[in-house]
């Protein structure tokens, strides 16, 4: 069982990197630090696309919904979401 994402302290400094094997000793240390949960490598393999590719996926997804208000709003939220997640990475 390996970490899928780094474990960081409150200052954002990575204590354990992605790919680190989660041994019982490390799990105990994480618990002692007050860590409630970590991301582990799972059965689902997903790589985030590049921002431009992700935005293209969104455009294609909404290319047949016409001017329906709910879909227009969802499209707006989704585009803002993509902008936000790439802004934070």
């Amino acid at each position: 069982m390996k970490l899928a994402r780094p474990v960081e302290n409150e200052s954002g400094i990575a204590l354990y990197g992605a790919g680190m094997e989660l041994t019982p000793a490390i799990i105990e240390r994480l618990k002692a630090m007050g860590t409630e949960a970590v991301f582990i490598e799972g059965a689902i393999e997903y790589r985030f696309p590049k921002k431009a590719d992700y935005l293209a996926v969104v455009e294609t997804a909404f290319s047949k919904t016409g001017g329906k208000a709910i879909n227009a709003n969802l499209r707006k939220i989704m585009k803002a979401h993509v902008e936000a997640i790439y802004g934070s990475r």
Partner: peptide, 16 residues
């Protein structure tokens, strides 16, 4: 929902 969904599909959570 979108934020949580991406967390769900991009990794598996191990809760202590």
């Amino acid at each position: 929902i979108l934020l949580e969904l991406e967390d769900s599909i991009s990794g598996t959570v191990l809760s202590f």
